[in-house]
Design a protein around this nucleic acid. Structure first.
Lengths: 180, 180
DNA sequence: CGATTTTTTGAATCATATCAACGTACGTGG
DNA sequence: CCACGTACGTTGATATGATTCAAAAAATCG
C-alpha cells in the first residue's frame, strides 16, 4: 500500500508488536473490545460459543491477516467472540480507537481501509454461498486449498467447527478421502 | 448522512431513479456488472444457482437497502449472482464506476461508505454464526423478526433458499408453528 | 513412560432431503 | 364470469447424511 512517510511514522507509533503464546486468549466474550490484531506469524482463530456450549469458528488468521471481534468493534457492543492463539504467534496490536482516528489524521488511509473491507465482504459472501451449496466434503477440500499450510497449527475440531460439522463427521470425511 | 451541497448535487447527476417490474432481472450471472442499486420501494433478491440448478438466496433488499453482485463489483469478475425483482419496485440506479469515482471527487464520502461496509460485514458475520448455531426453525423466527413485512413480497421458496432449507422443510416448520 | 488430549470407529437416532402426489390459489383468455 | 392451466404450498413415505453417545485407538506432552 502506498503511504506517505508521515503516515507510516504515525502507524508505527500506534502499532505494538507482541509475542503471544499458544493457548492464550486475546479477546474474551463479554469484554469490551479495544484491539485489532494483524498477524505476522503463527495462527489465531475467532470463535463463538453457543447456548449448548458448542464452539463455532468464524475465522482463522494466519500471516498477514487481520483478526478481531469485528461485530463488537463495528457496533460498539461487547465481544461475542473469543480470539485464541492456536500457536505461539506474533501479532501487531492496534488500539481500535487509534486505528479509527487514522482516517481523520491521514485521509489516504480511507482507500486502503475501504479496499480491506471490500475484500472482507467478498470473502464472507463466498463463504455463505459455499456453506449453502457445497457438501461437507467439498467444503473441506476448498478449505485445504484456501489454507494449505494451516493444519500444522489447528486441531481437526477447529476445522470441523469452521466447516459447520462435528469433529466425528470430519474424521469420517478424512477417512473416505485417504481410501480414494 | 451529512454531505455538502456540492456532493449532493453530484450524487443526483449520477443517480437515476428507475421503476422495475416484478419478475425482471437486473443482473444476470455471467454478465459484466455495471450497476449498484439502492431500493426505495419494493423488494429484490440476489441469488446464485448451483451446479444442480438449485437456487440460493444471498440477500433480500427492501426499502433503503443496497443490492448488487458485490462479489463481482469488488473483484472485477463477471457476475455469479442474479438480481431479481420480487415485486414492482423503484430503485436508484448507480453506475459502479461513477460511484467509485465519488471517493476521489468528494472524500467526505469515504467515511459514509466505510460505515456502510462495516455494517455489511457485521451482518454477514452474524448471518454465518446464526447459520452455524441455530436450528432451521430458529433461523426462520429470526428472519421474520429481521424482515417483518417481507412476506408480502416473497414466495416461501425464496425464504427457504435464504435459510438454507428446502421449501418442503420450511412448509413443515410453518405448520408446526401454527399448531403451537 | 504414563497421563492427557485428540482422533477414530461403531451403533442408534435425528433432522432434513428427496420424490411423488395432492390441494389450493391465481390469473388469463374464452 | 367462469373454466382452465400453471405455479405454489402441503403432505406422506422413504432415503440420506450428519449427529450423538460411547468406547477404543492413536497421538502428544511433560
Amino acid at each position: 500500500m502506498p503511504l506517505s512517510e508521515e503516515a507510516k511514522k504515525h502507524l508505527f507509533t500506534i502499532a505494538k508488536e507482541t509475542k503471544v503464546l499458544k493457548g492464550s486468549t486475546l479477546i474474551r466474550e463479554g469484554q469490551y473490545v479495544k484491539k485489532t490484531f494483524f498477524v505476522t506469524d503463527g495462527c489465531l482463530r475467532a470463535y463463538s460459543v453457543d447456548k449448548n456450549g458448542k464452539e463455532h469458528t468464524l475465522q482463522f488468521a494466519v500471516k498477514n491477516w487481520w483478526i478481531s471481534d469485528f461485530i463488537a468493534i463495528y457496533t460498539g457492543e461487547l465481544a461475542t467472540l473469543n480470539i485464541e492463539c492456536l500457536s505461539d504467534s506474533t501479532v501487531i496490536d492496534f488500539n481500535t480507537q487509534e486505528l479509527n482516528d487514522i482516517h481523520t489524521l491521514f485521509p489516504e488511509f480511507e482507500a486502503f481501509q475501504r479496499n480491506n473491507l471490500e475484500r472482507h465482504v467478498v470473502s464472507l459472501h463466498k463463504r455463505i454461498l459455499n456453506q449453502m451449496q457445497l457438501t461437507a466434503e467439498e467444503r473441506y477440500d476448498l478449505f485445504l486449498e484456501q489454507y494449505p499450510d494451516i493444519e500444522q497449527y489447528t486441531r481437526n475440531y477447529h476445522i470441523a467447527s469452521y466447516l459447520g460439522v462435528t469433529q466425528q463427521s470430519l474424521s469420517r470425511i478424512r477417512v473416505t478421502k485417504t481410501k480414494k
